[in-house]
Amino acid sequence: MTRLPVLILGAGSDIAMATARRFAEAGYPLQLAARRTERLERDRADIELRHGVKVSLYDFDALDIASHSALLDSLPDLPGIAVSAIGLLGDQAENESDAGAAIRVMRTNYEAPACFLGEIANRFEARGSGTLVGISSVAGERGRATNYVYGSAKAGFTAYLSGLRNRLAGKGIHVLTVLPGFVDTRMTAGMDLPKRLTAQPDEVGRAIFAAVQRRRNILYVKPVWQLVMAVIRNIPEPVFKRLKL
């Protein structure tokens, strides 16, 4: 059986690469799209050697929205599964003083992944099959002083995925929202993260793979995050606004 490829957008991130590797291990060919794909050449060689699957690299800039459909047109096969790992943590202090920086974070975490998955969704709908995976964030569940620019964009993306899922339910297309929680990656390097709440990229990759197989709707990579976020969401606003989280 030849499998349709898995397309990974923002493939340069640790979570994206771990997810790619997990799918390759299961025999899926990969289409990896990222900026500066030359830095992914060694990973491509390694994945092809280990798993004997074809790995293709595509250079793209997620913020160049007009390029999304061109990239999809250039793929030899429309993928069976598309994963968006597009995202940018940014710096909250900088985002507060520099609207340009804030806009970049908002666009990278909301506009770019939403529009790209939306474009793919239309093509999946025309075909009548496909799985969309959006890597969002628990930060989108409630705005906090320390990262609300990032969080608000992720909130938008989470809502978008929810709507997409609602629209495509019953049309053969599945949408998975991934809320990784803390992950030990390049993005969080240097942060002091609580060990019990922090996942390794491999763990996220495996969890996403399993969730796609089981057609889950929402994935908290570490189940404890579901509880943590339930508590955080339910703290009354008069109390919440005084908390330092």
Binding site: R42, D43, A45, D46, L49, R50
Partner: peptide, 11 residues
């Protein structure tokens, strides 16, 4: 810790 240099290059 060198374990991040964990890729096979060619065979």
């Amino acid at each position: 810790d060198m374990r991040r240099f964990g890729r096979m290059v060619s065979f």
